[in-house]
Amino acid sequence: MSIPAEALQKLMQEIESRANFSQQQLQIVKAQMAGKQRDIRLLQLTSKELETLPKGTSVYEGVGKMFVMEAMPDVQKRIESEEKGLQGDIKDLEKKFTYLETTLQKSQEHINRILNPQAAS
Rank of each mutant, 00 (worst) to 15 (best):
E82V: 04
L104Q: 02
G62A: 06
K84R: 14
Q24T: 14
V68H: 11
Q37E: 10
S58G: 13
G62H: 08
E80T: 04
Q23T: 00
Y99D: 13
T102Q: 11
G62D: 01
K106F: 03
M12R: 08
Q24H: 07
T57H: 03
I40R: 00
I3S: 08
A31M: 10
A119K: 13
F21Y: 03
E16K: 12
V63D: 03
L26F: 13
Q87D: 14
L43H: 08
E61D: 09
Q76K: 15
F21E: 04
I15C: 01
E14N: 13
S81D: 14
P4I: 06
E70Y: 05
A5C: 09
I3D: 03
E70P: 01
L11H: 04
V68K: 14
L11C: 03
D74A: 04
T98K: 07
I3L: 12
Q118K: 14
P117Q: 00
A7F: 06
P117M: 01
E94K: 15
I3G: 02
K106M: 08
F21G: 00
M33V: 09
S58K: 08
S81N: 15
L26C: 05
K30W: 08
V29S: 01
Q118G: 12
Q108G: 10
V75R: 05
T52M: 12
E83W: 00
G88C: 05
Q13D: 12
I90G: 13
K65P: 04
T57Y: 03
E83H: 08
E61N: 08
M66C: 09
K10E: 07
L8E: 01
Q24R: 09
K55Y: 05
R78E: 06
P4D: 09
H110C: 13
N20V: 02
Q118S: 15
I114T: 06
S17Y: 04
I40Q: 04
V75Y: 00
Y99L: 04
G35F: 06
R18C: 06
M12T: 06
K77P: 03
L11A: 10
Q27F: 07
G64N: 10
K84I: 05
L26P: 06
K65F: 03
N112K: 15
E80K: 05
I40V: 15
K96E: 11
Q24L: 11
D74L: 05
F97S: 11
V68G: 06
I3W: 07
P4R: 04
V68Y: 09
E94D: 13
M66L: 13
L100D: 05
M69N: 09
P54M: 02
L8S: 02
F97N: 11
V29A: 02
V75T: 05
E61W: 08
N112A: 15
E83R: 15
K36C: 07
L45C: 04
A19D: 11
Q76W: 01
L115Q: 05
G88R: 13
K36E: 08
Q87P: 15
Q37C: 01
L26G: 08
A5M: 12
Q9M: 00
Q25T: 10
T98L: 08
F67P: 01
A7S: 09
T98V: 12
A120M: 07
I111L: 12
M69P: 03
P4F: 10
A19P: 01
N116E: 14
R38I: 12
L45V: 07
P117F: 01
K84Q: 15
L115K: 12
